[in-house]
C-alpha cells in the first residue's frame, strides 16, 4: 500500500492530525476519518455539488480534492455552520421556506450560499439562481431554495 502522509487540518475550528493515503478524497476523509457525515456525496465527479465544503472560506467540491491538499488549511462543513439550537440564518431560512425535502443535497447548498451571501448581501433572483446553478436538487424544483436565500439575505441584512 502507498505511503501515508500527515495531514494537519482545521475543520470547523478543531485541529485534526491524521495520517492518510495520498489518494483519499477530502469527502471520504471528512465523512469516514473524521466522522463528519453531514457532507454528502452524490456523483463523485464534481457535478452535483452535494459535497461542497468551504476551503479557507471558499466553496470547493470535496469529492474532487484529496485530503492531503488540506494540510495547513481550514475547512468548514455543514456541521460548522450552526447547531440544532442555534441555526445559521441561512439554515433558519431554509427551514422556514421549506427549502429542503430529503435534505441530501442541502449541506452543499448551504456551504455554497454562506460565502455567496457574505459577498452579495442583497442578491437579485438571477444572481441567486446563478449562485446555485452548480448544485443539483431533485426534490424541490429550486423555487423554495431561491425564496430561502432571499429570506436569509433579509435576515442577515437586518
Amino acid at each position: 500500500m502507498s505511503d501515508l502522509f500527515n495531514v494537519n487540518v482545521t475543520v470547523n475550528g478543531t485541529l485534526y492530525e491524521r495520517e492518510v493515503e495520498p489518494r483519499i478524497l477530502l469527502s471520504d476523509f471528512l465523512r469516514h476519518d473524521l466522522g463528519l457525515t453531514g457532507t454528502h456525496v452524490g456523483c463523485e465527479h464534481g457535478v452535483c455539488g452535494a459535497c461542497t465544503v468551504l476551503f479557507d472560506g471558499n466553496p470547493v467540491r470535496s469529492c474532487l480534492m484529496f485530503a492531503v491538499q488540506t494540510n495547513g488549511h481550514e475547512v468548514t462543513t455543514v456541521e460548522g455552520l450552526g447547531d440544532i439550537d442555534d441555526l445559521h440564518p441561512i439554515q433558519q431560512a431554509f427551514w422556514e421556506a421549506h427549502a429542503l425535502q430529503c435534505g441530501f443535497c442541502t449541506p452543499g447548498f448551504l456551504t455554497t450560499l454562506v460565502p455567496f451571501l457574505e459577498e452579495n448581501p442583497d442578491p437579485s433572483e438571477e444572481e441567486i439562481r446563478n449562485a446555485i446553478s452548480g448544485n443539483l436538487c431533485r426534490c424541490t424544483g429550486y423555487q423554495h431554495i431561491v425564496e430561502a436565500v432571499q429570506l436569509a439575505a433579509e435576515k442577515m441584512r437586518a
Binding site: R31, T39, V78, L81, G82, D83, F94, W95, H98, G103
Partner: peptide, 18 residues
C-alpha cells in the same frame, strides 16, 4: 415548518452511508 429539518440542516441526520 418541518420537524425533521433541524437535523437535516445541521448535518446530524443519519443516512445509510453514515
Amino acid at each position: 415548518k418541518r420537524n425533521e429539518d433541524p437535523r437535516l440542516l445541521t448535518g446530524q441526520a443519519l443516512f445509510v452511508d453514515d
